[in-house]
Design a protein around this nucleic acid. Structure first.
Lengths: 193, 193
DNA sequence: TACAAACATAAACAAATGTTCATGTATTTC
DNA sequence: GAAATACATGAACATTTGTTTATGTTTGTA
């Protein structure tokens, strides 16, 4: 599928607007206005408003899945797999913060059957993380923990990071490398000295 | 301010619906339909749709603020303050999961000037947490860490918990006491054995 | 019992929204 | 230079939405 530069511009501007205002609150007229053309012209680029959301969400979801699959397929120890997963997650979130923001905040606006499809993908991703943690526990690398809690907490610890790269630069942005170092420290051994 | 039982029922049902579908996607007619009366009747209970959101959001925000203020005012060590904070957070989220869900997911739908007011409250809350962590670092109880990252990660680790109490009971719900034990373990000393 | 408050309905509204259609102008490609 | 493709406009549409107004019924209470 070829993407003309204008279409790409349309999609990127839509992405940013949807991130700013939320999917429901962003109207087709909002998008068109920002691009200085009439609403109707938008439909030369997309078939429907939903399509914008769907394409971004599934594209980004796929990227995360590919990444975790590669990590799980590797011969690293559970500890190094987890480090590698963290690293990949941070890379994606810093490279494509708006896409990740959409993934986190706007998936609820999908309609069936896409919504179901997405939720299934999300559950699958969680299960992959759970498996990684479970292996680590079985190999006595990680503590004995409730897998469900551990999975949620690890994912929650990473999920907010896109925000550092969408917010205005009134403060210095976090350096992804340093962030990775700190987050690895936190997840592996907590904050206690 | 007295709240009649019918008004309370109206608000609670609105709360659940808004949580299910999102604020924008929930129409006044949706709410009325669920309560088996006409849309117009809703306006005997509230002045506007926005008011529903505002009242829940600021009420819950206040509760969190009161709680953290009490924690900070105590004579506990930084470590015990943090434990106490975690405990309070989990209590609120398990007692009022829908209110907390709204706080986390729907604040973007506030309009100015309420939006600004809310964001300020939220920033203030974060600063309070940062202060707690900073004190702990200065007293050599916590590791040397980037305060901004540590604050975000601690809050993110707690934020998702309401979900355990809003989701259908197809799986056993988490016991808040056990959750607290695990989360304290995680935040204080990570997952590494 | 009478009066006020609470609870309810029906009809209508203005504005906003996603989308389509018919049509026109650039731009690219052969 | 002709033909196809990309880019754009304006008008119109059917729905949906929050909210108001006028009016009626039920319920608690003095």
């Amino acid at each position: 599928m070829k993407v003309s530069p204008k279409k790409e511009e349309f999609l990127q501007e839509s992405l940013k607007l949807i991130h700013e205002k939320g999917f429901k609150a962003t109207t087709m007229r909002d998008i068109a206005e920002r691009l200085n053309f009439d609403v109707s012209n938008s439909y030369n680029y997309i078939k429907s408003k939903q399509e914008i959301l769907e394409s971004f969400l599934f594209r980004t979801s796929n990227e995360f899945h590919k990444t975790i699959d590669n990590v799980l397929d590797s011969n690293y120890s559970a500890e190094d797999k987890l480090k590698s997963l963290i690293s990949s997650h941070i890379r994606i979130a810093s490279e494509k913060p708006y896409e990740v923001a959409l993934l986190v905040n706007e998936w609820r606006n999908l309609k069936e059957p896409k919504l179901n499809e997405f939720v299934t993908l999300r559950d699958t991703y969680e299960k992959k993380v759970s498996k990684l943690l479970e292996d680590g526990i079985n190999n006595k690398i990680f503590k004995q923990m409730d897998i469900r809690i551990a999975t949620s907490v690890v994912l929650a610890s990473l999920r907010w990071f896109y925000d550092e790269y969408t917010v205005k630069k009134n403060e210095k942005n976090l350096n992804p490398i340093e962030f990775e170092r700190q987050i690895v420290g936190f997840i592996l051994s907590g904050i206690l000295l």
